[in-house]
Simulated assay, not measured.
Amino acid sequence: MPSPGKIGAATVKENVRRLMDELEALRLKAGGRAITISSGFRGIAHNRAAGGASS
């Protein structure tokens, strides 16, 4: 298993697709209202450049 932050592009793509499917199902159960995402994932280098959390 890869260490945290070292996930292959194909795995990321599949995980994002699955997340989108789940969020769409949730949105439909909520009457079609919009879902706002206020946080997300940054790669290690991007997080470091942005001054993000060290862990």
Rank of each mutant, 00 (worst) to 15 (best):
M1H: 06
M1T: 05
S3L: 08
S3V: 05
S3M: 03
P4F: 05
P4H: 05
G5S: 03
G5A: 03
G5Y: 01
K6N: 13
K6L: 12
I7S: 06
I7Q: 08
I7W: 05
G8C: 10
G8Y: 09
G8Q: 12
A9S: 10
A9M: 08
A9V: 08
A9I: 06
A10L: 09
A10G: 07
T11H: 14
T11A: 15
T11S: 15
T11K: 15
T11L: 14
V12D: 04
V12W: 08
K13W: 05
E14P: 01
E14L: 03
E14H: 02
N15M: 12
V16M: 14
V16D: 13
V16T: 14
V16S: 12
R17S: 11
R17V: 09
R18A: 09
L19E: 14
M20A: 15
M20N: 13
M20L: 14
M20R: 14
D21T: 12
D21V: 11
D21Y: 08
D21K: 13
E22F: 04
E22P: 01
E22C: 05
L23H: 02
E24G: 02
E24I: 04
E24D: 00
A25M: 00
A25E: 01
L26I: 06
R27Y: 02
R27K: 10
R27M: 04
L28D: 08
L28I: 07
K29S: 09
K29M: 06
A30K: 12
A30G: 09
A30V: 00
G31D: 01
G31E: 02
G31H: 01
G32M: 03
G32F: 00
G32H: 02
R33K: 09
R33G: 00
R33S: 00
A34G: 10
A34Y: 10
A34Q: 13
A34N: 13
A34D: 14
A34T: 12
A34W: 11
A34S: 13
T36G: 10
T36D: 12
I37M: 03
I37G: 02
S39Q: 13
S39M: 10
F41E: 08
R42L: 15
R42Y: 13
R42M: 14
G43R: 03
G43K: 00
I44T: 07
I44Q: 06
A45P: 12
H46P: 09
N47P: 08
R48I: 04
R48D: 07
A50W: 01
A50F: 07
A50T: 09
G51M: 04
G51I: 00
G51E: 04
G51W: 04
G52S: 06
G52Y: 03
A53P: 10
A53Y: 09
A53D: 13
S54E: 15
S54K: 15
S54Y: 15
